[in-house]
Write a protein that binds this DNA or RNA. Structure first.
Lengths: 222, 222
DNA sequence: GCGGCGCGGTTACACTCCGTTACACGGGCG
DNA sequence: CGCCCGTGTAACGGAGTGTAACCGCGCCGC
């Protein structure tokens, strides 16, 4: 079985969209990965992310894996279909989550505002997935990596020493499985972007975006 | 501008999930394609499909196109984000639609049951898109075409003369843009599947599934 | 504290699958 | 009747993969 969140109550179960209660999934820096739910599980709750990063993924019988999305603060993850989770959810960093009981989905009268909030979150999820479709279906390896970095920069970029800096809590394998590539290709493209002075690789998990405009151009295939 | 549905009132605007009012988009057999909405449009309504097939697609600035989904009866299409459509919607066949005013999304109190129904439809959409992700990211050309036919067979297959028969209202280009392939590859794979006696090609737009089990095996990469 | 080990990441190279290009065919509409 | 669009077939080339070797870093045991 997978680890439940320690320090009960693990997750705040509350109606207000945000904020929730602090949940420290793992204090150790290494392997902060913790399972939130598995595909096929009966869904008891869905989770608003207040802090941290969550990975949503699916695996085929033959082991091939596709990462559906990386959940960042403001996202809601764990939407069930017919009461069951359709993908795996794992934390990549320590997180703060707000758990919404799944039954709210069926009973809007319990909390109409929350219901509308969740619907809105679902619609935003659908919109984001559509971009991901274009990426997987119609973009080259370089364009995919550039798109990934560009979106992440907008979403979670920070100015450090006057440079747009990006933390990549996920492994190269995670990135590859998100983009429909292999780790080797991800590596190659990253080094290529570095050689072109578009990005800088501070550490394995830290990237600086030195030329955001160029990155966007590459991402859009221009 | 794109064609609005003829024979006003074009679409039934009603609360009840289904059924709606008959809408004949085009009577001529050729080019039954009619635009429902375009990406970026302010969303006035979303549409439940009672009959017919709707194509949802997005195009990049450089012209590359990705088909997000084919909407079949029971689906709801046109979910907006921030009040705007995020993809193009076109009918591929004459359709019967139920139009739900977009403002219902923001005001659950107007019709709580409908609100819950739309949320549920959105969740099913998310679930379906996840399968599509696996297809685009992690399946070979053959597996993609097989998956496509397998899903369609389950969804819209009919028994004709004791054979599982499938109508393909979309063009080869549409299929290619849905699967992230080219028309040539789609053609190649279809003829290959025919040579393997897995499917039969009655007409260009009619396929028989002669060996459903084999099709599923190919689709799952086994 | 130090050295060995193992894992994740990077690099190099040959191959393969699929996109590109080109052409042939057929049916519908003008 | 001829044009044109959609489709099918074939040959070729290239982007990305698979395989394998190498590297660097953190962890563990000694």
């Amino acid at each position: 079985m997978y680890v439940t969140l320690p320090d009960a109550p693990a997750v705040s179960t509350h109606a207000a969209p945000l904020p929730g209660r602090l949940v420290q999934t793992t204090t150790s820096s290494r392997r902060a990965e913790t399972a939130l739910f598995r595909a096929g599980d009966a869904a008891t709750a869905l989770y608003g992310i207040a802090a941290g990063v969550v990975r949503l993924s699916r695996v085929m019988e033959n082991g091939r894996r596709q990462i559906i999305a990386f959940g960042y603060p403001g996202d809601v993850v764990g939407f069930p279909v017919a009461g069951r989770h359709t993908c795996d959810g794992d934390t990549l960093t320590p997180v703060r989550l707000v758990a919404y009981p799944a039954r709210i989905l069926d009973c809007p009268s319990l909390d109409p505002d929350l219901h509308a909030y969740l619907l809105d979150a679902a619609l935003r999820e659908i919109g984001g997935m559509q971009d991901h479709f274009l990426m997987l279906g119609r973009k080259s390896a370089t364009e995919r990596v550039a798109s990934f970095l560009s979106v992440l920069a907008r979403r979670a970029g920070r100015q450090v020493d006057g440079r747009l800096t990006l933390s990549l809590p996920m492994s190269r394998t995670d990135i590859a499985d998100f983009l429909g590539l292999t780790t080797e290709t991800v590596s190659r493209v990253l080094t290529h972007l570095r050689q072109c002075r578009v990005i800088g690789l501070e550490t394995v998990h830290t990237v600086t975006v030195d030329s955001p405009d160029a990155l966007d151009c590459i991402a859009e295939g221009r």
